[in-house]
Design a protein around this nucleic acid. Sequence first.
DNA 1: AAGTTATATAACTAAGACGTTATTTATGCA
DNA 2: TGCATAAATAACGTCTTAGTTATATAACTT
Lengths: 120, 120
Amino acid sequence: MELLDASFGALADPTRRAILARLALGEATVLELAKPFQMTQPAISRHLKVLETAGLIEQRVDGTRRPRRLAKPALDNIDQYLDTLRRALAANYDRLDQVLAAMDRNPDSTPNQRKTGGSK
Amino acid sequence: MELLDASFGALADPTRRAILARLALGEATVLELAKPFQMTQPAISRHLKVLETAGLIEQRVDGTRRPRRLAKPALDNIDQYLDTLRRALAANYDRLDQVLAAMDRNPDSTPNQRKTGGSK
DNA sequence: AAGTTATATAACTAAGACGTTATTTATGCA
DNA sequence: TGCATAAATAACGTCTTAGTTATATAACTT
């Protein structure tokens, strides 16, 4: 699943998330996107390429401009992955040893927690 | 939202996602985690620190071992963020210009697409 | 055709990520 | 005590990322 590599990697950068936030309001060109972020146009173009490779945005051709907008495939993919994690998490919390572990890790009940014998 | 930086960054690495997949089956120690991945123990320890900083896993103390398990906060946080993107995406797709854009970007209908006279 | 505008690409630099081996710290055990 | 084991940390090399400036490409404008 290397699309996940690209997708999560793309989302890990605050500038790229800001770009997505801007695109959430509607499509925008490179220069429009570059304006609010004090950063050069080439830098934004690179970020856009990363986002597009990740499947998070799409291009459109309009003369010399290339307005970008949000795309869905990556989001669906990510959602699906996170779902498996959520499920596993829920399942683990239902297990007894997880409950015991939770008690064990509470510093109030056992100052210096152990479990083999009980000393130090 | 720099927790998102950490969370998405953590999920961008395939080794770390594999670690999470293993932890989805239940808690495991560093050495147990290191075994399947042919990688040294220090490397795994670093990955675990990244995952923990991101809020994706937790530790437990058991003598000299530190079994890890999945944690929820980061997932909730991520879910919430993705939700805003999903919403924006849906909203954008409801707009007329987005629909026109979709047609415009279809290479079959217009070989060298323009639009100065059409929408915008 | 010539100039302008929108974007992409190239070449470079600085910083960060990810792996290694060697060593340290902390606990358990004889 | 002293040795063994689990995990963390240090120091280091290498590859990747994110930014810069300079330049190239493509399309619109006159």
